[in-house]
Amino acid sequence: MIELAQVQKRFGENRVLQGVTLTIASGTSMVIIGGSGTGKSVLLKCILGLVRPDSGMITLDGQDVTKADRDAFLARFGMLFQGGALFDSLRVWENVAFRLLRGPKALPKAQAREIAIEKLRRVGLKPATADLFPAELSGGMQKRVGLARAIAAEPEIIFFDEPTTGLDPIMAGVINDLIREIVVEMGATAMTITHDMSSVRAIADNVAMLHGGVIRWTGPVGEMDATPDPYVQQFIHGRAEGPIEAVR
């Protein structure tokens, strides 16, 4: 279980997170929604330790993440980055098997390659893709490779940062379905940040809306449409009028 208590983070005068409190139960899929620039990515990076919060506490299974052994902590995570963040200089299979080839539990190259090809197949890519470089792939294929890399070491927790941004609606649907299938199949805890409502409905067990640096609303995805919260209603229906200023 991931718990955030009163997490705050500011960059100069910009108070991005102003006291975020949120609980993500093990084995569930939490989707964080919110407008651009509301701090969704910062929140995710705070959990991973890529950004250090100014105050508040983040715990994983009751243990303060800032005091955990970094390697052991990170070994429990997989992450799909918004732009894929694939390493340009490495072939696709080396990207997917990156973690498997390094560290104290490093696998032999042939075995790591075999697992990478299996994971590529799992996300719908042919084995021939394995020897290409990321620059030779389309945006949708890069997302799939990023997803294969995120699941390669079979992590307990997977983070998805804007998984469908920049994709056409059909490819976005394919990625959403893949994420849902993989999360269910692996029994992983998932945390996704997005402002794509089709992703929310496809991926989420629970939804939390981040606005004004705090969690404005959280609840099961089935209750999202019925909530009277005007911020949530404006966001999910994409209305220009409402309490959220259209120009931020």
Binding site: L48, L74, A75, F77, A85, F98, R102
Partner: peptide, 10 residues
């Protein structure tokens, strides 16, 4: 974000 990706890959 490739450097962030390196960190998440330990």
């Amino acid at each position: 974000e490739q450097i962030d990706a390196l960190v998440t890959l330990s």
